[in-house]
C-alpha cells in the first residue's frame, strides 16, 4: 500500500511537470467557462420575464459530466503505456513492488489530478452564491457523483493503457472503452420496444443490464439532482475495482510473454 502511494505521488506530480495537464486544464476551463456564461445569461433573461428559478450548479455539473469523457483518455493514456515502451516497467517489476500496487498507484495519481480539475469549478459555485441562493444539497451530491464518475472513467483508462506500449493505441482504446459504456444505454431503448412487442421477461433482463452498465444514467438522474442512490455508488466502485483488477492481470501477464 505504501508503494502504491509512492507511485501515486509521482504520477500526480508528473501531471504538473508535463504540458498534458495544462493543455487539458485549458480545454476544460475554456469550454466550461463558455457554457457557464451561456447558462447564466439564458437564465437571467428567463428571470426577467418570470418563470426562471434560483441559480443552480446543475448548469455546471450537467455539461461537466459529459466533458470529462473527452479528457479522461488523454490523462490516462501514458500511465502504463509509457512504462512499457520506455522499458521503465522492467525496473519497476524487478524492485519489490507488486503489480496491483503499481496499477492502484497509477490510478490514484490520476484520480487526485482529476479531483483537482473538478475542484476548479468551485469558483462557479462561489459566483452563484454571490448573486443568488442555490440549493446546497445538489452541490454536495454533484461533487460526490463527479468524483466517483471520474474515478471510474480513469480506471477504465488505466486498463486501456495497460494493453499496449503505443500511446496512440492507448488513447484510442481509452476512447473506445469509455464511450462504449457511456452510450450502451442507447441500444436499450430499441431493445425495450422489441421486448414490449414480444412481451418476454428475458429480454427485459438484458435491457435492465444494459441500462445498469450505461455510465451516464448513474450521474445525471441521481447525483446531479441531489439524490444519492447506493446502487450508483456501488456501480462506480465496481467499475473501478473491475478495471483495476483487469489492468493488474494484464501487467502480470506481460511477464509470461
Amino acid at each position: 500500500m505504501r508503494n502504491a502511494w509512492t507511485i501515486a505521488k509521482r504520477e500526480f506530480a508528473y501531471y504538473f511537470i508535463s504540458p498534458i495537464a495544462y493543455a487539458v486544464a485549458l480545454m476544460f476551463l475554456v469550454i466550461l467557462g463558455l457554457l457557464f456564461f451561456a447558462n447564466v445569461f439564458f437564465m437571467s433573461q428567463q428571470n426577467t420575464f418570470g418563470g426562471g428559478g434560483e441559480p443552480t450548479m446543475q448548469w455546471v455539473f450537467g455539461p461537466l459530466g459529459s466533458l470529462i469523457l473527452f479528457f479522461v483518455p488523454v490523462l490516462t493514456m501514458r500511465l502504463l503505456s509509457e512504462e512499457q515502451n520506455k522499458g521503465t516497467l522492467e525496473i519497476l517489476l524487478t524492485v519489490p513492488l507488486k503489480e496491483w500496487e503499481l496499477v492502484l498507484g497509477k490510478w490514484l495519481g490520476a484520480w487526485l489530478f482529476g479531483l483537482c480539475l473538478i475542484a476548479t469549478t468551485i469558483i462557479y459555485a462561489l459566483i452563484l452564491f454571490a448573486y443568488g441562493n442555490p440549493d446546497l444539497g445538489p452541490i454536495y451530491t454533484g461533487y460526490l457523483g463527479l468524483a466517483l464518475m471520474i474515478g471510474a472513467l480513469l480506471a477504465v483508462g488505466v486498463f486501456a493503457s495497460s494493453l499496449t506500449g503505443n500511446l496512440i493505441v492507448a488513447v484510442a482504446f481509452g476512447y473506445a472503452f469509455t464511450l462504449t459504456i457511456w452510450i450502451i444505454g442507447f441500444i436499450s431503448d430499441p431493445l425495450q420496444n422489441l421486448a414490449a412487442g414480444l412481451s418476454s421477461g428475458r429480454s427485459n433482463l438484458i435491457v435492465d443490464a444494459l441500462n445498469y452498465i450505461d455510465f451516464s444514467g448513474h450521474f445525471q438522474n441521481t447525483f446531479n439532482r441531489g439524490v444519492i442512490d447506493t446502487s450508483d455508488v456501488v456501480y462506480f466502485l465496481s467499475v473501478i475495482a473491475v478495471s483495476l483488477f483487469l489492468a493488474t492481470r494484464v501487467v502480470e501477464a506481460r511477464r509470461w510473454r
Binding site: 520506455k86 522499458g87 516497467l89 522492467e90 524492485v95
Partner: peptide, 24 residues
Amino acid sequence: PETVPLYDDMTVWQYLDFMAELRQ
C-alpha cells in the same frame, strides 16, 4: 537493464529518491 530505462522528467536526485522510496 541493458537499455537503462529512466524517467526523463526527473532529476538524478529525484529519481533515486523515488526508487529508494519504492524500495522502502
